[in-house]
């Protein structure tokens, strides 16, 4: 076998002398070799904690029964199946995710449509909408916390001027707490979508609008028949990205309500945290974490699918 490959004139015989050598120097093995350092680092950083978490989720490390540590089994998963708090948290995560996605996408699209044709004060217009993104989530939470305050928050002070509308304790009222958090999150994250939409709008050839105009399409028809279809992949990608962001969201919820009042804003991430660090039930927390990972994987798969479609069918049928 090894003699089948004869050195060709002009080739260096020492490189092609053996098949295994060849495999490692230019075949797939070579690629693996080159990737090895990165794979090792990734393995340590991502793989190890994952494995640790999976193991933990089958263990019984909990403050309530310290002696039970080392008892392995599926009891945490069994508990998860029938835990109304857990499924409530999943529902709240879903609501939070949908709320932030809807809010961010519409706000970002509106802002992008408003500013993409601006010529004078262009930088200022764009900066205005990008600014919230530069504010760390923690700071966002603190600022909105102050604004939502029932007594001296600016929101209630402003509402004093609106007849028949009363101020609320936004974060303390079960009815409004989740929505209030969603607003803060949207404010913080919509610039991501805004940038993408702005770029998307710029990539639509002006001639398409002119052609549509000549064909009697008014402003709304141009939006409906040109802008939206031309942006559809960007919108799809952004929606899924924001779903992932919204599902994982933590700092804003944690700082503003910590899951309260009475669990009204306890999303899966917050529940996972609270289970670990308030109830000190580490194994069950790991189980909740695994559930979150599974949901994330589904979302990421959706994302990859959309990306693949966007790459292949740039203008055609889907």
């Amino acid at each position: 076998m090894t003699t089948r490959m004869r050195a060709q004139p002009g080739e260096r015989p020492d490189i092609v002398s053996g098949r295994s050598r060849r495999f490692m120097t230019e075949g797939p093995g070579f690629a693996l070799l080159m990737l090895l350092p990165a794979l090792l680092v990734l393995g340590f950083v991502i793989g190890l904690p994952m494995i640790k978490a999976v193991i933990l989720s089958f263990d019984t490390i909990t403050f309530r029964r310290p002696a039970a540590a080392g008892t392995y089994g599926v009891h945490n998963y069994a508990r998860l199946m029938s835990d109304p708090d857990a499924w409530g948290a999943v529902l709240r995560s879903a609501l939070y995710m949908l709320g932030t996605v809807a809010g961010s996408v519409s706000l970002a699209l509106g802002a992008a449509l408003l500013t993409h044709r601006v010529i004078r004060l262009r930088a200022l217009a764009r900066l205005t909408f990008l600014l919230p993104w530069t504010v760390p989530a923690v700071v966002t939470a603190l600022v909105w916390g102050v604004m939502y305050d029932g007594n001296f928050g600016v929101i209630n002070r402003l509402l004093d001027f609106v007849p028949f509308v009363n101020g609320q304790d936004w974060l303390i009222d079960r009815q409004t707490a989740l929505a209030a958090l969603i607003v803060a999150q949207v404010w913080n994250e919509f610039p991501v979508a805004y940038i993408f939409f702005l770029a998307g709008l710029h990539s639509i050839p002006e001639e398409l609008y002119e052609a549509a105009k000549i064909d009697r399409a008014g402003a709304f028809a141009r939006f409906r028949f040109i802008t939206l279809p031309q942006l559809r992949y960007i919108i799809a990608v952004i929606v899924i990205l924001l779903m992932i962001l919204g599902f994982k969201a933590f700092p804003i919820i944690f700082i503003l309500t910590g899951g309260g009042p009475a669990g009204a804003t306890e999303t899966l991430t917050v529940l996972t945290y609270n289970t670990a660090f308030r109830s000190l039930d580490f194994s069950y927390s790991a189980t909740l974490g695994i559930l979150a990972v599974l949901v994330s994987i589904v979302l990421v798969l959706g994302y990859l699918r959309v990306m693949a479609r966007a790459d292949t069918g740039k203008g055609g049928a889907v």
Binding site: L208, E210, A211, I214, D215, R216, I226, Q230, K314
Partner: peptide, 21 residues
């Protein structure tokens, strides 16, 4: 307005709507 004129135009690079048949 452009959309009220009884004349039509053909553009140099066609300006066909790529997402329509």
């Amino acid at each position: 307005a452009a959309h009220n004129r009884p004349v039509k135009m053909v553009f140099q690079d066609y300006a066909l709507f790529p997402h329509m048949t």
